[in-house]
Amino acid sequence: MKHAVFSKIVSAATLATASSVLFSPSTLWATTLEETSMHAEIHTAPTAHHRENMVRSYYQAAEMHPYQEEAVSVFFDEHYQSYPPRKNGPDISGKQSVLSLLKNLSEGFPDGKRSFAMIEPVGEDKVLVYFTFTGTHTGSFFSYPPTGNKVSFVGVDIFTVKDNKFISNHHVEDLSTLLEQLKSN
């Protein structure tokens, strides 16, 4: 069966006309003959439901093993900013920085997963996320060689969405707990 890729997330009302629609990590796929009528781009702000689904799809893509940068990259605007900014050098963009971090997490913690206590749309353009990351340190993570240690730490992300892309993320992670857990036994 042919699949049509939507370039934009469309409204729930439009999606309801399809008989079989599912979310993939970076796009929506329709699997009906009605899909050609759903190619119209919608230029309104994403609804709270769409922003929540976008965040869930992003985390799903970020946790694919092996890591697939192209599946994650589509969620970020080219001018994406991370707050606080990571210090990766003057020629590294916010988007490149977050993609590098996600790759390192995937390589360092191949079984890494986030569980979500909260994914909550806020206001017109934000999504608040409270998560716990768990995994086993069986690969290199930045300068930390594999220890085999289990890790668990919490984090908060506040994504800002514009034109169905993340334009920024204000985030806090309990890195002191992570670093303590990475110490060799």
Results as ranks from 00 to 15, higher is better:
Thr147Ser: 15
Glu52Gly: 05
Leu15His: 05
Pro25Lys: 01
Pro84Phe: 05
Gly108Arg: 02
Ser152Lys: 12
Val21His: 03
Leu99Gly: 11
Tyr59Pro: 02
Ser37Thr: 15
Ser106Met: 05
Asp174Asn: 15
Ile119Asp: 03
His79Ile: 00
Glu70Gln: 10
Thr147Ile: 07
Glu34Asn: 13
Glu41Leu: 09
Lys150Pro: 07
Phe133Met: 14
Met54Trp: 00
Arg114Ile: 02
His3Thr: 14
Glu180Val: 14
Gly108His: 09
Arg56Ile: 04
Thr32Gln: 13
Pro121Asp: 05
Val127Ala: 03
Ser143Leu: 15
Ser37Glu: 13
Ser93Pro: 01
Pro85Gly: 05
Pro121Lys: 03
Val156Cys: 11
Phe75Leu: 12
Asp163Gln: 13
Thr160His: 06
Arg86Leu: 15
Ile42Ala: 00
Val122Asp: 01
Ala40Pro: 01
Asp174Glu: 14
Ser37Phe: 12
Lys95Gly: 06
Ala13Gly: 10
Met64Gly: 00
Arg86Ser: 12
Asn185Arg: 15
Leu182Gly: 12
Val154Trp: 05
Ala4Ser: 09
Thr136Phe: 03
Asp174Ser: 10
Ala12Gly: 11
His171Phe: 15
Ile119Met: 04
Asn149His: 13
Ile158Asn: 11
Lys126Pro: 01
Val127Arg: 00
Val154Leu: 12
Glu107Arg: 08
Phe133Cys: 12
Ser143Phe: 14
Leu178Asn: 14
Thr32Cys: 14
Phe141Pro: 07
Asn169Gly: 06
Ala62Arg: 05
Gly123Glu: 04
Thr27Ser: 06
Asn88Leu: 12
Ile42Thr: 04
Asn53Ser: 10
Lys103Glu: 15
Leu179Glu: 14
Arg56Tyr: 02
Thr47Trp: 00
Pro146Cys: 10
Thr160Lys: 10
Phe166Leu: 07
Asn169Gln: 06
Ser106Lys: 03
Leu28Val: 08
His43Tyr: 06
Ser143Gln: 15
Asp111Leu: 08
His50Val: 08
Pro121Glu: 02
Gly139Val: 10
Met38Ile: 07
Val72Lys: 01
Tyr58Asp: 03
Leu179Phe: 15
Val151Asp: 08
Leu102Ile: 11
Gln81Met: 04
Leu105Asp: 01
Ala30Gln: 10
Lys183Ala: 13
Gly139Tyr: 05
Lys8Cys: 00
Phe159Ala: 07
Pro146Ser: 13
